[in-house]
Nucleic acid binder design. Structure first.
Lengths: 318, 318
DNA sequence: ACGGTACGCTGCCGTTTCGGCACCACCCCG
DNA sequence: CGGGGTGGTGCCGAAACGGCAGCGTACCGT
């Protein structure tokens, strides 16, 4: 329905080059070039700054770009909305997520969704924390399953769940019997840390700094899967939320001990949606589904190694 | 920039007829027809119900229509935004207004705006109260200068001013000396009323009903100008806000006596903007301008016949 | 200094799309 | 049973679009 120039303009801005955009679009660069020139002529001002390296949007270009991208996103949403009129939900749900959610939790959710709504497609990505705000605002993703960060603006938290970042280790680890641990206690043993590029790490480093503990991690990685393997092999203690290790904890292969530090013992994971954007029907369904699933074992997330009914005393304890 | 089919689709829906739309668009009806058929083919579902009388959007059509219209409005806004990058504000401001504001107040505002920003165009309309919500929501207008109505949803009140609906009459009218009047007192004299189709009337009829007063108006009209003329000619008392009669009141040609009924003595006029819609630069300027102007003589609106210092004597006399 | 390369841009030309015209089929109304 | 209204359809010229080859330029590495 929409003019081709919208896609062209978007791609050129993304690629920073007319020729690259043309290649990505599978059209001749001349065609793309002419569309851009014609567009600039219509708007009346240059939309790109030309340089040897390529093109860069001007202020006017940025403004129009926002309109174009919003239009494309809204069109997709409208299409999904129309498709769901026929009863069958379809469309694409675009999610950005913590890698820990992505390891065990979300695959199950996605499987359940596809079972009920076969025509729904998914894009599930982990992103650099610095790109979270942009990914949500730009509409590249419908919503995020992320740590709740008060610094994020223009974002609504539609659901929120307490979880405890804790020490993850094998049952035969010397610290495995503890009900709660401090970072200082853990620091005497080999530890395994997430790469500091990631949000979890960002939270933890600040906490470490406050507690005065100094950790020299034996292993650093940004892969939850890698961490799983090295922790299972007894190479050290990992600091994670239990979510990505539900199976191992349930089977007794690993033990998750909450940390005493207040900022870590009650981290909050939430469903974050961009404010002022309507959600597509499949995205709405997906959010409801995630919310329901999360509340179902919310207690497990908060205190993974014990049962709900008995927690009142113990909480007073910790 | 945007495909022609957007305009076609919009017009067809508005006109309820492909041929009428084609005429309004100055293209052949066959061209419009084919674009619609092609669009329906692309979306995959019928967008219109065909009947002998013309076409009517289906549910899917309504959905897509909302997207299309929003796209067009946002495009205009983006254009205006780009244009204001160059320093000169341009674009069109679309306002819906009370007719009383339209009689004296808004023309002055518009004149001042065009003096400062010659490239800004205006559309100022009075609309049927039942269409206010639709006009704001659909984006047909940027904002409204209207009575604040709590029943309106999805609308923000960015500025609000108390005003008093009162009895307007010539200085030699028997009631002209009163400081405050009740509807019952006025009911003994000939009155002039706004046509009941209009919001002001809607407010007043409820108030009349509560106060138990029965008015059999000598003259009914929906034209502020007509009311002005017949009141000046001494044909009766009008029930209005003083806004549309500033000049006459200041010159002493007419006297405005507030009404005692609480719902009338402190009516609220506000600037109403649709929530969740960005305003174009000229619309923002216009709103700020109106707000400033209104606060400047806000006291005049609230108590027109009693200026704190100088005018108290004369008013008491008349 | 000099190719090599990547960039945006521009004639030229075939193909696709668009729009105008005339016309068909249909329905309602007088 | 016409007359006027509706949406839909061949046909055809015109305009737009896209592909190809090529131009000028600026940068980079040898």
């Amino acid at each position: 329905m929409h003019a081709a120039v919208l896609r062209y303009f978007d791609h050129v801005a993304r690629q920073g080059s007319i020729r690259k955009a043309a290649e990505a679009l599978s059209v001749a660069s001349s065609a793309v070039n002419r569309q851009i020139l014609r567009l600039e002529d219509e708007i009346g001002v240059p939309l790109f700054e030309r340089s040897r390296a390529g093109v860069r949007p001007t202020a006017a270009g940025e403004l129009l770009l926002r309109h174009v991208r919003e239009t494309q996103i809204e069109f997709q949403r409208a299409q999904a909305e129309i498709a769901s009129l026929g009863g069958t939900v379809s469309g694409t749900v675009r999610i950005i997520s913590l890698e820990s959610m992505l390891a065990r939790f979300l695959p199950e959710i996605v499987a359940e969704m596809t079972a009920r709504h076969p025509r729904v497609n998914f894009t599930v990505l982990t992103v650099h924390p610095s790109e979270i705000a942009e990914a949500l605002r730009s509409g590249d993703s419908d919503f995020g399953v992320l740590f709740v960060d008060n610094r994020l603006s223009g974002v609504d938290v539609v659901a929120e769940f307490r979880t405890a970042i804790g020490a993850l280790m094998r049952p035969n680890h010397p610290l495995a019997g503890a009900k709660v641990l401090t970072l200082t206690e853990c620091a005497r043993h080999p530890v395994i840390m997430l790469n500091d590029r990631w949000l979890l790490s960002a939270i933890m480093t600040t906490e470490f700094a406050e507690s005065g503990a100094r950790l020299s991690p034996r292993i650093v990685s940004n892969s939850i899967e890698f961490m799983r393997q090295v922790i299972v092999r007894g190479l050290g203690i990992g600091f994670v939320t239990p979510i990505g290790f539900i199976d191992e904890i349930r089977r007794g292969e690993l033990v998750h001990v909450p940390l005493a530090e207040p900022g870590l013992s009650d981290s909050r994971i939430g469903i974050l949606v961009p404010r002022h954007r309507r959600l597509s029907p499949p995205a709405r369904l997906m959010i409801n589904h995630i919310r329901q699933r999360l509340t179902e074992f919310g207690s497990f997330l908060a205190a993974p190694t014990r049962e709900p009914a008995k927690r009142s005393k113990r909480n007073r304890r910790a």
